[in-house]
Design a protein around this nucleic acid. Sequence first.
DNA 1: ATGCAGAAATTGGTTGGACCATTGAACCAC
DNA 2: GTGGTTCAATGGTCCAACCAATTTCTGCAT
Lengths: 243, 243
Amino acid sequence: MTDPLPPIQTTARDDAVLKALAGFVRQEALVPGEKLPTERILAERLKVSRNTVREALTRWEGLGLVERRQGSGTYLKAAVSPDMLHMPLTLAGGNDFAGLMRTLEIRRALEAEAAALCAVRAGKAEVAEIERKLDIMEEAFHSRAGMSSEEDWEFHQSVYRASGNPLFEQIISAMHELFHRFWEHPLGVRDFGHASFPYHRTIFDRIAAHDPEGARAEALKLIATVENDLKRGAANLKLLDRK
Amino acid sequence: MTDPLPPIQTTARDDAVLKALAGFVRQEALVPGEKLPTERILAERLKVSRNTVREALTRWEGLGLVERRQGSGTYLKAAVSPDMLHMPLTLAGGNDFAGLMRTLEIRRALEAEAAALCAVRAGKAEVAEIERKLDIMEEAFHSRAGMSSEEDWEFHQSVYRASGNPLFEQIISAMHELFHRFWEHPLGVRDFGHASFPYHRTIFDRIAAHDPEGARAEALKLIATVENDLKRGAANLKLLDRK
DNA sequence: ATGCAGAAATTGGTTGGACCATTGAACCAC
DNA sequence: GTGGTTCAATGGTCCAACCAATTTCTGCAT
C-alpha cells in the first residue's frame, strides 16, 4: 500500500538533522540522562545552521525526548530508536471536572487490562516487587492515616510494568502529570481515596493468584470508588458555589 | 504534596508566544483549515524575533496543531483551546509482531471500556448510527466475502464516538495508522478477521440493550479472535522463514 | 474578453553572526 | 569549609539577508 511515487525530498533539513542525531545517539549508545553535543558543535558537524539544529531539537523537546537547560546543555530524556512512532495527543479541556472524569475513564480501561495482563504474566520477581510497593503504601496509609498519592502511584506503576507491555506505563504516565494537581488537593474531599485503599490488596491478591478476570474486576472496583469520590467532590464544589 | 518551592520561571518567550497565539485563535474564532498570520506579522505584532515565533510554531507543528506550507502559509489543523493538555507519546518499536501485539492490548483495553460506556450512554440517535455502520459493514462482508478493514474501522469509530468520551477516539485513531499497514496485508492469513465478524453484531446488541458488562465481554471476545488471527499469522511467517 | 506563460510578490526555510541570560566550575578571600 | 567572584561554556533571542516553494498579478497572443 506504499505510495509508488513518494514525493522527493528536496528540502528536509531539520528532519535530516533528527535522523542524523538519532543515528548518533544509537551509535554512541547514549542513555537517558546523558548530555548530547552542544548546538554549535552539531551545527558545525552537520554543516547546517545552528537555527536549523535548534528547530530540530525543539521538535524533540516538544516530544519529550530531550530536555534543554540553558547554560548547561541538552540532555537525553527518553530512549530514542529510529523506528519509533510519535503520537501527539492534544486533549481539550482537562482542567474541569468533566475533563477529569474523561481521563479517569481512560485510566479505568487501561488499569483493568493492565491488571489482567499482569495476573497472567507476572513472574515471582514481579509479584514480589508489587507486594513491596503495596507494603510501602499500606505502611504510609496507616502511619499518616490517609492515602498517599506518591506511594499509591508507585504501586500502580509497578503493576503497569509487570504487565509486560510498556505502552500502559507510557500512556498512563503521560496522563498522570495532567491531572496531578487535582490528585493532590482533590476538590476538598478530606478522605479522598480512602475508599479505594482496600482494593489495592485485593488486586494484588488476584494478580498473585494469576486470576486475570478477578484482577480485572477488582481494578474496576477500585476506579469506581475513585469516581465516586470525585463525584462527591464535585457535589461539594457545587454547594460552595451556591453559598 | 505540591513542591513548596517550585522553580521560578524568568523567561518563557516562546511559551508566551503560544499563549498569545492561542488567545488570538480563540478571539478570531479560527476553525481548522483557516490560515493564521504570517510569521513576519506575528513577529512584528508580538514584538519578538521571527526566530522565536518559528520555535513556537515548530512546537505546535510537532503537536499536530498547525501545518506549515512553504510559500503558502501556516494553517490551523486542529481546534485549539487555551486549557488544552498535550500528551506526546513516542512508542518505540511498533513495527514488528511483538509491537503489534502490544498495541492490540491497548486497543483491547480501550475497546472494552468504550463499548461498556457506550451501552450506558448511547441514545437512540447514537444506537441508530452504530447500527447503520454495522449494516454497511455486514453488507460489505457478504458482497466481498471477507472483512473490509475500512467499514470495520468505521463501525468501531462510531462506537468510540457514542461512548461520550472523545479521548477514546483520539487515542485509538492515533494508534490506528500504526498497525494499518499490517491490517491491510495481514501476514498472509487469507480469512483474516473472519472470526471476529459475528462479534460486531453481538456487541451492538449488548449496546442497544444498554448492557455495559455484556458489551464489555463481547468486545473482549472480538479482540481475542483478532489476537488469535495475528498469532496464526505469526506462525505462518515462521514457517515461511524456515523454508 | 479569454487563456496562459512568465514576472513579481508572498511566505515559510535556511544561513551566519551577534549578543544576552543562565549555569557550573575554578578560584579566591575569610 | 563557607561564601563570593570571575569566567568560560551553553542555550535563548535577535537581526538581516537570502533561498525555495507557492500564489498572485501582468501582459501578450488568440
